[in-house]
Simulated assay, not measured.
Amino acid sequence: MIEVRPDHPASPALAALLAIHVAGARAHTPAENAHVLDAGGLAAASVTLWSAWDGDELAGFGALKELAPDHGEVKSMRTAATHLRRGVAAAILARIVAEARARGYARLSLETGTAPAFDAANRLYESAGFVDGPVFGGYPASPHNRFMSLDLGA
């Protein structure tokens, strides 16, 4: 069973998977369009990070960034290779959505890639109800980025 719990990006347990996440995002997206957060970015006061655990094995992580009092952003979703297709990302995303609702956000947005490496993430977000939307949060529009949002007001 996957346990999703609050964590800190400086946690030594997260270091290797976070490095894989940052390198992977940068490998599949041009530098000017790769908006991945490293440990420093994830440590910002506006960001809350959760890690997912399968017993004592790190299974993944994800974060929620507050953009405004009524608007949050899903950041840095990553599943460990050993835990792919086992519901880890869905559990993390459910925790992020639940927290966004608890905070009273009207909208939850995300930016992801368009390269084939992002196909599984895109399917996950679509299955959770996210739909394509406008550019937000100061990101530049690009064919390498996909912007999605989930209306939490309904």
Rank of each mutant, 00 (worst) to 15 (best):
G129D: 01
S127A: 15
N33T: 11
A27N: 11
A102P: 14
V135N: 04
G133C: 15
A121H: 04
A115Y: 11
L84M: 12
F61V: 07
R26Y: 05
R86E: 14
V97Q: 02
K65W: 04
A34P: 00
A19H: 09
L64F: 03
A91G: 03
N33D: 15
A89Q: 06
T48I: 10
D38E: 09
A94M: 03
A31H: 07
H28W: 14
T114L: 08
K65F: 07
L93G: 09
A45E: 11
H83M: 09
A90R: 15
S109E: 10
L14C: 05
L42P: 06
S11A: 14
A68Y: 06
S109A: 11
A25V: 13
S127Y: 04
P69R: 00
A31I: 03
E3F: 07
A15S: 12
N33L: 08
A90N: 13
D132T: 10
A128Y: 13
D7W: 02
P9Q: 04
G113R: 00
R101K: 13
D7V: 04
L64W: 03
P69M: 01
T82P: 03
A34R: 02
G153A: 15
S46C: 13
R85Q: 12
S46K: 12
A141F: 09
L152M: 08
G72N: 05
I96C: 09
D7H: 04
K75T: 02
R123M: 09
L93I: 10
A121Y: 06
